[in-house]
Simulated assay, not measured.
Amino acid sequence: MNPRALAEILAGAAADAVAVPQLSIEHHLSLADAYAVQRLVVDARRRPRTGVKLGLTSRAKALQMGVSDVILGELTEDMAIEDGGSLDPARFIHPRVEPEVAFLLRDGEVKGVAPALEIIDSRYQDFRFNLVDVVADNTSAAAYVLGPWQRADQDIGNRGVVMEIDGRVVETGSTAAILGHPQRATEAAARLARTIALPMPGEMVLLAGAATAAVTLKPGVVVEARISTLGRVGFTYIF
């Protein structure tokens, strides 16, 4: 197993927006191997790191994958999309979108919280993967949109979440779907970062995990998410 060679496969798939077979079909990877590949995949983007994201924060999704812990991916500057901005479909293979809670952390302390949308885009054929595959692929991280930052001391434990596409409600849920309480994401991210020896930026964004199921994106739509007390966030997926 050559981590650099495997990272080149995934980095090339992301750059060219062309899907590749799962790495685990031909290569035996441990979880530690997968995180080593992930680090090299992120390095290949050659962009400043802006934060981290958690995956498998939903108990149902974790059970589906047969795991009992969350996974960690990295965010980079080129993944950030302005609220109300647009995304070009040419950047993606088979993207999906999900509403999340985002935290602004400074030296590990929460300084703000915001509604967010994450665009996930597995680089594997048919959006199929196992645990080590998705970790190596940087947990399918592709892009994210942040709404306005709100004060950090408010209760966000069980807030209603609505996601709309072209004004039609496509998913509803609660922030409680994120580890039972999204605030737990800050502890989980710090713990995982220590486990895999991942340096954390002094100021960073943390995407806490999905509050609903992900929805497939089709060109020409407007996506908006609303979280009770936190407000709204949105973008246009252009033709």
Rank of each mutant, 00 (worst) to 15 (best):
I120V: 12
L105S: 00
L87M: 12
A190E: 09
L54G: 00
K53Q: 01
G173L: 07
A11I: 00
I227S: 07
I165T: 08
L207G: 02
R184Q: 04
A14C: 05
F239T: 14
P182Q: 03
Q64H: 11
Q150Y: 08
Q150V: 03
S140A: 12
H28P: 10
S228R: 12
L207S: 03
F235G: 02
S228I: 06
H94G: 15
K53D: 02
V42W: 04
T50V: 12
T195C: 05
V169F: 10
N158V: 06
A34F: 03
P115K: 03
A116N: 04
Y35I: 01
G231P: 11
A34G: 07
L105F: 02
I119W: 07
S174N: 06
A190L: 08
K111T: 08
A14S: 07
L192P: 04
K218Q: 13
V37D: 13
A32G: 13
V169H: 09
E171A: 13
A11H: 06
I165Q: 14
V162I: 14
D153W: 08
G84A: 01
M65N: 04
E224W: 07
F103W: 05
A114S: 11
G167P: 05
R39E: 11
V162K: 13
R49N: 10
G209Y: 01
A17D: 01
D33V: 04
A213E: 15
